[in-house]
């Protein structure tokens, strides 16, 4: 048998398109700016790299402690520490331009205008293959999740980005909402080429010794295997509601996790926390998906996307 075709088109409606050689990508915030893991794995084998969320100006992030482990999960309150979009364009994009793996830049604005400005600045940058609009960060006081909490605000942020770039635009949704499908429909209506879901769930942990919140910023975002069933269900729900491709994200640690998301309707997956547990997780997952397809005589990934519907 011919080796299976794992490639996916994430932005079929976009003139520039966003073709990934395979569906395994890195979740924003867990893979730095891409080069951090280059010594550990062959990053060129990934479907795409989604870099650390970027803001207009550099940000210092939240006070320590920023990470706490929970059972099967991790709470983080990094607080969007990043180098700012200018440094990203100057220092990181030239490296990406030499890579075959597409790099998608995650952007976070504090206002609609900032989302627009970030899109405009990234539009013509060589080495940037797409934009992921972060309307779902739970760790910042302005912007982020407040855009992701209402269909109107989510659509506004999406529209602001779309109006200022020809790059494929993926909108990353928050699970901290009543009806994620409603938000999904609103951002698709506003022109999103694809969706990614889910970002982290709000949570907290309390330290017995200090009797205070364990995280420096009180609350944080929960990721890891603990949130997988929630993420999977949300991907399944959204896949019924929209026509655009979906990137599934949330606790994906193994190939079987990734396949569940694909069956639920995801065209690609984002691997995050699992990379901390196993730095080779992405490539192990890729191999596992390939083995499954060979075993089950699946020639193209598209044959199994949404199989569970």
């Amino acid at each position: 048998m011919k080796s299976p075709d794992l490639s996916v088109q994430l932005a079929p409606q976009n003139s520039r398109g966003l073709r990934l050689a395979n569906p395994v990508t890195t979740a924003s915030g867990t893979f730095g700016y891409g080069a951090e893991y280059a010594e550990v794995i062959d990053v060129q084998r990934l479907g795409a790299i989604i870099c650390k969320g970027i803001t207009l100006k550099p940000r210092h992030g939240n006070p320590q402690p920023r990470l706490v482990e929970t059972v099967g999960g991790v709470l983080n309150s990094i607080g969007m520490e990043n180098i700012g979009v200018d440094s990203l364009i100057r220092e990181k994009a030239p490296t990406w331009a030499g890579w075959s793996v597409p790099v998608i830049v995650n952007v976070l604005g504090q206002s609609t205008e900032e989302y627009a400005e970030l899109a405009r600045l990234l539009d013509g940058v060589t080495g940037v293959s797409g934009i992921e609009v972060n309307i779902s960060c739970p760790n910042v006081s302005a912007g982020g999740m407040e855009f992701g909490a209402s269909p109107e605000a989510a659509a506004e942020a999406t529209d602001a980005v779309k109006a200022n770039t020809t790059l494929p635009v993926i909108v990353k949704l928050s699970p901290n909402v009543t009806d994620i499908a409603e938000i999904a429909c609103a951002v698709v209506e506003a022109g999103a080429d694809a969706l990614s879901l889910i970002n982290t769930l709000k949570g907290m942990s309390i330290d017995l010794a200090s009797r205070r919140p364990a995280l420096g910023n009180t609350g944080g975002g929960l990721s890891g295997p603990a949130i997988k069933p929630i993420a999977l269900h949300m991907v399944y729900q959204v896949a019924q509601a929209v026509e655009v491709p979906i990137m599934g994200c949330g606790g994906i640690s193994t190939a079987s996790d990734a396949l569940e998301f694909i069956f639920a309707g995801a065209s690609a997956v984002q691997v995050g926390t699992a990379t901390f547990t196993n730095p080779r997780a992405t490539l192990d997952i890729l191999e596992g998906i390939k083995r499954f397809m060979e075993k089950e005589s699946v020639h193209q990934l598209s044959e199994i996307i949404g199989a569970a519907k």
């Binding site: 650390k52 920023r66 990470l67």
Partner: peptide
């Protein structure tokens, strides 16, 4: 401190020094 990645990717371990973060 609690570390996430060990390679400078997750920024979970950032501290303040006299020369910045």
């Amino acid at each position: 401190v609690v570390l996430g990645c060990g390679v400078g990717a997750c920024l979970g371990c950032t501290i303040e020094t006299r020369h910045g973060q």
